[in-house]
């Protein structure tokens, strides 16, 4: 047990997997709506809208659980960044992924009880969880309740701007998801990080 750290308490694992499932359903139904076609319907449009709305609302509650959990538990400290140092650290981590990993270099920021995420990971998690998801939630609520959206802004339809924001951020979250899954193979072994998100224990390098 010495090389394992209990990073993922039950609430965090439950939130993570439910959030992952919701995001996947939201991506599939979102794509189905955006590329809906009479000739080749992916998912019936009204069903896609209903599922997308329901999953979106559940995701909002999940997000509140995540934020509350981070405030009241110690998990929140892993998302704190030192703005003076983070830039240089990201560069070091980026170089490691770019060629260090192929040369057999040691992990520059190994996981320990004080450091759950490497700097690059931390930066993107903060961007997604504290900027991306809130933007998705706000624009999503706007699309569910369009009467609250300003009708025109800068000469363009407010509904269009809100939709564009929702779709663009949703697209980047989808891209993040793919990169996230790939980089989860960078644990002590290829599968150890995935196992950790099931049993709560993360193996260290």
């Amino acid at each position: 047990m010495e090389n394992k750290i209990y990073f993922y308490p039950v609430w965090l694992r439950l939130w993570h997997w439910s959030n992952a499932l919701l995001i996947l359903v939201l991506i599939v139904t979102g794509l189905s709506m955006q590329y809906s076609s009479f000739e080749s319907p992916h998912i019936p449009f009204s069903l896609a809208v209903t599922i997308h709305n329901i999953c979106g609302i559940i995701l909002v509650f999940g997000y509140l659980v995540f934020i509350t959990g981070n405030i009241i538990s110690k998990n929140g400290r892993y998302y704190k960044m030192n703005l003076k140092e983070i830039g240089g650290q990201i560069l070091v981590q980026f170089r490691y992924y770019l060629y260090g990993v192929f040369k057999g270099d040691k992990v520059p920021f190994p996981v320990n009880i004080e450091r759950k995420f490497n700097p690059l990971q931390k930066f993107f998690y903060v961007m997604i969880m504290y900027i991306g998801i809130p933007l998705l939630i706000i624009s999503g609520i706007g699309l569910i309740l369009p009467q609250f959206i300003v009708s025109r802004a800068l000469g363009v339809s407010g509904l269009l701007l809100t939709s564009l924001l929702h779709i663009c951020v949703g697209f980047f979250v989808s891209i993040f998801l793919m990169i996230h899954i790939y980089f989860c193979t960078f644990g002590a072994s290829i599968t150890s990080n995935f196992k950790g998100m099931f049993n709560g224990w993360q193996e260290t390098h």
Binding site: M33, Q34, Y35, S36, S157, L159, L160, S163, F171, I175
Partner: peptide
């Protein structure tokens, strides 16, 4: 330009950019 209809509004350039990013990733 005048409204927004989900499914009917597909901007060619945005589609191309997003596909390019997807393929690159």
């Amino acid at each position: 330009n005048r409204s927004y209809v989900i499914g009917a509004n597909r901007n060619y350039y945005l589609n191309m950019i997003s596909l390019a990013i997807l393929y690159m990733v």
